[in-house]
């Protein structure tokens, strides 16, 4: 199996498509969580190499979740990529300023998603 991705997404259909894409086409190992809280509960046990975080989620948004993940010393240095349907430039700039490697816009292309993630990871040598 390839690198481990913690995918946090509240929409079950998108979860399924992303899982198929990332596992079948990309060869990643994927753990999916439906909420920020679930991600916080499971992240240590899973030990991911990358966070793939939806931004607009009820209860806890992707950026809030990332801020909390960054506070956990055992997760230090793990990169994050946001996925968002909010395509305004200022939203994207704000997300990058939080420390994200990149932002993937929805609707994403399921067939190109694994390659997209690999090329983003390549920019930081992962």
């Amino acid at each position: 199996m390839g690198p481990k991705i913690l995918h946090v997404e509240d929409d079950l259909d998108i979860q399924e498509i992303a899982k198929l894409s990332l596992e079948t086409l990309g060869g990643f190992e994927v753990r999916q969580c439906i909420s920020g809280q679930q991600a916080l509960d499971e992240v240590i046990g899973f030990g991911p190499d990358l966070f793939l975080l939806d931004v607009m989620m009820p209860e806890m948004s992707g950026d809030t979740l990332y801020a909390q993940l960054k506070l956990m010393p055992e997760l230090e240095g793990i990169p994050a990529i946001f996925m968002t349907a909010r395509a305004q430039t200022k939203d994207i700039i704000e997300l990058k300023e939080l420390g994200a490697l990149d932002v993937i816009l929805k609707p994403f292309d399921a067939m190109e998603l694994p390659e997209q993630i690999k090329s983003i990871l390549a920019t930081v040598g992962k």
Binding site: D11, D13, I14, I17, A18, L20, S21, T24, L25, A85, K106, P107, F108, D109, A110, M111
Partner: peptide, 11 residues
């Protein structure tokens, strides 16, 4: 929903 439709069909 467009993400889901497009993703599913693409796969």
């Amino acid at each position: 929903p467009v993400t889901s439709i497009k993703g599913a069909l693409g796969l």
